[in-house]
Write a protein that binds this DNA or RNA. Structure first.
Lengths: 186, 186
DNA sequence: AAACTAATATACCGATCGGTACAGTGGAGA
DNA sequence: TCTCCACTGTACCGATCGGTATATTAGTTT
C-alpha cells in the first residue's frame, strides 16, 4: 500500500506547519515529521523547495479569504456579509487557537520574500470591508477608517490571545469590534 | 585597540537582531554579522547561548516598559500617564518601523520557550492601563475592556503597518485608540 | 503482461547550524 | 614592569540545514 497525495491535499498540512513554527522554524525535517510526507514527494510537488511551499500556502489562504470573506463583502448584502465575516473569522482562526500566517510573516524578515502577497491580503480585506460599510450607510472616510480598525483589531486579538493562551480574548475582541462597526452603520 | 563591551551594551544590539529576524531566523552567524560581536564575546556574556540572549532581551524590554509605561500608569496622574503612553509607544516602536518582539514571539513556537515572560508582559500592561482608566473615572469592567482593546489595538497596528510598509497606519491607529479611551473617561 | 509514468523513499551533498575549546590580547593593579 | 584576568578571535565539533540524485513502488495504458 502506498499513500498517494495531490498538491491540494498537501498545502493545508504545510499551512499548519508554517503557522506553528514560522517560516524559519519550519525546517524540511520538521515538515516531513509533522505532515508525514517525505522529501521526495515534497520536492516532486514543489520543485522550488521551501519558498514555493510557503508561496502555495499563501496563495491557498488568499483564495479562501477571497471566496469566503472578500467577495461576499463586495457583492452580497452588506450587513449580512459583515455579520458573516465575524463568524467565519472566528471559525477560521479557531477562536484564537490558530494564528494568521500572513500577519506572522509580516513581522519578521520573511516579509521580504512575500512582500506583495502580504500587502495584497490586507489591502483587499480592508477595501472589501470598507465597500460593505459604505453600502451599509457609512461615509467614505469613515468606512475606510472603520475597516482599517476592524482588520487591525483582528490581528491584535490574535497576538493577544496567543500570548495569554486564552481563546476567550479573541472571541470577546471580535464581539466588541462587531458591535462598534454595527453601531456606526445605524 | 580592542573594543570592549559590557552585557548592557550588547542586549540592545541583540534585541534589534531578534526583532528583524525572529528567534529562529537569528542565527549565531547573522547575530555576529549584524552586531559586530564575535562568538567568543557572545558566549562569554551569555553562557546559555541563544536562549539566554533572547531571555536577556525580553528582560530588558520588560524593564523598559515597567519604568516608562506601567509604573506611570499605576502611580502618576491617570490622564497624563495615558497621554504619555501613546507618545512613548509611538516613539518606542518608531512609528511602526519597529515590531514588538514579545508579540512576535507569541505567534510561533518560540512562545513555548518564554511562555510566562510573554504572558506577563501583556497582563501587566493591561492591568496598569486598566488601573489608570479607573482612576480617570471608568467603571471596573469598562476599564478592563478598554485596556484590553487598547493593548490589542497596538499589536494589530504593528502587524498592519509592517504588512503595508506604512508607518502612517501605526500613528493613525494610535491616535484613534487614544481618542476612544479619552472619550470613555469623560 | 509489458511498458510507461506519477509518486515515493532514501542515500547523499556541501553549507551552515548552535556550541565548545583555547590561545591570544590588552588594560588595570601590584 | 610584571602579573593577572576579563574579554575577544578563531579553529573546530557533531548535528542538521535545504536541496539533489536515483532507485523503487504501484497504478495505468497498451
Amino acid at each position: 500500500m502506498k499513500t498517494v497525495y495531490e498538491r491540494a491535499d498537501i498545502v493545508p498540512l504545510l499551512a499548519e506547519t508554517f503557522r506553528e513554527l514560522g517560516y524559519e522554524g519550519a525546517t524540511l525535517s520538521r515538515i516531513t515529521e509533522r505532515t508525514g510526507i517525505g522529501k521526495g514527494s515534497l520536492y516532486h510537488f514543489f520543485p522550488g523547495g521551501k519558498e514555493e511551499m510557503a508561496g502555495a500556502v499563501l496563495a491557498d489562504i488568499d483564495a479562501w479569504f477571497e471566496q469566503a470573506i472578500y467577495r461576499p463583502l463586495r457583492n452580497d448584502d452588506a450587513r449580512q456579509a459583515i455579520a458573516a465575516m465575524w463568524v467565519n473569522v472566528n471559525d477560521y482562526f479557531r477562536a484564537g487557537g490558530r494564528i494568521c500566517l500572513v500577519g506572522a510573516f509580516a513581522l519578521d524578515d520573511t516579509r521580504a520574500r512575500f512582500s506583495s502577497e502580504i500587502a495584497d491580503y490586507f489591502i483587499r480585506w480592508i477595501e472589501a470591508l470598507s465597500s460593505a460599510l459604505m453600502r451599509a450607510g457609512c461615509a467614505e472616510t469613515e468606512a475606510q477608517t472603520l475597516a482599517e480598525e476592524g482588520v487591525c483589531g483582528i490581528q491584535g486579538a490574535l497576538v493577544l490571545s496567543r500570548a495569554l493562551r486564552d481563546g476567550k480574548v479573541f472571541t470577546r475582541s471580535l464581539e466588541a469590534l462587531g458591535n462598534r462597526l454595527e453601531a456606526a452603520t445605524r
